[in-house]
Nucleic acid binder design. Sequence first.
DNA 1: TGGAACACTATAGTATTACTATTGTTAAAA
DNA 2: TTTTAACAATAGTAATACTATAGTGTTCCA
Lengths: 227, 227
Amino acid sequence: MKSLLANIKITVDEKVYLKDPESSEKGQQIIQHGILLIDELGLEAFTFKKLAERIGTTEATIYRYFESKHTLLVYLISWYWNWLEYKLVFATSNIPSAEERLKIAIHILSGEIENDLDFAHVDEVVLQRIVVAESAKAYLTKGVDADNQEGFFLSYKRLCRRIAAIIREINPDYKYPDSLVSTVAESAHYQIFFSQHLPSLTNINNGKQNQLEEFLTDLVFKAIEKQ
Amino acid sequence: MKSLLANIKITVDEKVYLKDPESSEKGQQIIQHGILLIDELGLEAFTFKKLAERIGTTEATIYRYFESKHTLLVYLISWYWNWLEYKLVFATSNIPSAEERLKIAIHILSGEIENDLDFAHVDEVVLQRIVVAESAKAYLTKGVDADNQEGFFLSYKRLCRRIAAIIREINPDYKYPDSLVSTVAESAHYQIFFSQHLPSLTNINNGKQNQLEEFLTDLVFKAIEKQ
DNA sequence: TGGAACACTATAGTATTACTATTGTTAAAA
DNA sequence: TTTTAACAATAGTAATACTATAGTGTTCCA
């Protein structure tokens, strides 16, 4: 995506961090190398200590930005969803056909992504790998309800609501628009994961995002078709 | 489900454990209370030490059955999938209509479950909660490929393959039977989870498994319908 | 009947993790 | 100029995920 707006910034809800990582260079390093290191090591083996070493600082500094590695994860995932929403709004503005807008939404959810030059310290391709492999862990915890009350999942919910609204526009009688959207969003992740690691669970070939898009588009449009 | 076969036993592949927990009372206690404790604490807070305390033994004993808490998780999930497969095979035998068999499969995946009296030390209702909340963590790790080579996910793959075969029977031209089945299986889990914790992401009401079944059945049959 | 073999208990120890706390330095804001 | 803030440096804690080893009691079978 070409740089469309020079001064746009993806923001994440205040509650997710202790100090805004966008507000300083150290903070931006935490985000940038946090993404790379989680991708390298996986969330389990990733620690603030290792991240601190890599960016030449100490754990204490990182803890002033994020309460825990869990909230760092939540931050990164929220950033990702906000970024997708920004791409969606941009790509669907001035498009009158709801069907067309839904197709674009599914295209974006299927995850064909180039690095976005607008956000220099975020490697979106790597971030997407993290979202695919780790995002479920952000909510599959005993703390979900508390986290949800804090608003940790608002970005995801907002994006889903927006896409569900398009479905309601196309067919107001379809009974499960929200379930369908969350199914597509999650399915996109693990179909990518399965294609890479457990290929017998999918018919999508590794790297062929267009097959995934076709599978999901077909699924959605058949589901919501008026009888 | 009434006890149909007195001596049936759900077995899990040897590679998953060091010593078969079915082979001794301690082993069965590990399974029984392992399930209850993971459900209570969540996988993150669950430790072998806590489990050992609860069943009046020590960590060392548990380590003789399972290499790590990760393999215990894999064991429990494999057991669950094997149990579902057993229920599926039973419920679909002698039913000639592939459509009917597929409906039964979706019903079973949707997770309406009563405790199965055949397996006394396993509380299937609680085990299902674990599968819903924790099963993704069994494969979303840096060790997936190694685990997969060890055969840790064979139970899941076998069940999916079996259901995909029914789809192929109904419509051999449908291009994504495996993806559709894994999507339905995974979707069933987090739609239940969302209905309990993030209800705005779903239209299924907490506890209403029949809505989930309707959503998934509708989705699948429309997807595979011949044009 | 004796003696391995085995299942389990008891205890100890290790490296690492996920933090918290404290003190000191530097550089910019009031 | 004083204050404040951001960060560095160091230390410390309770818990985790193991590993190791020695000892006890029961069973098997020669």
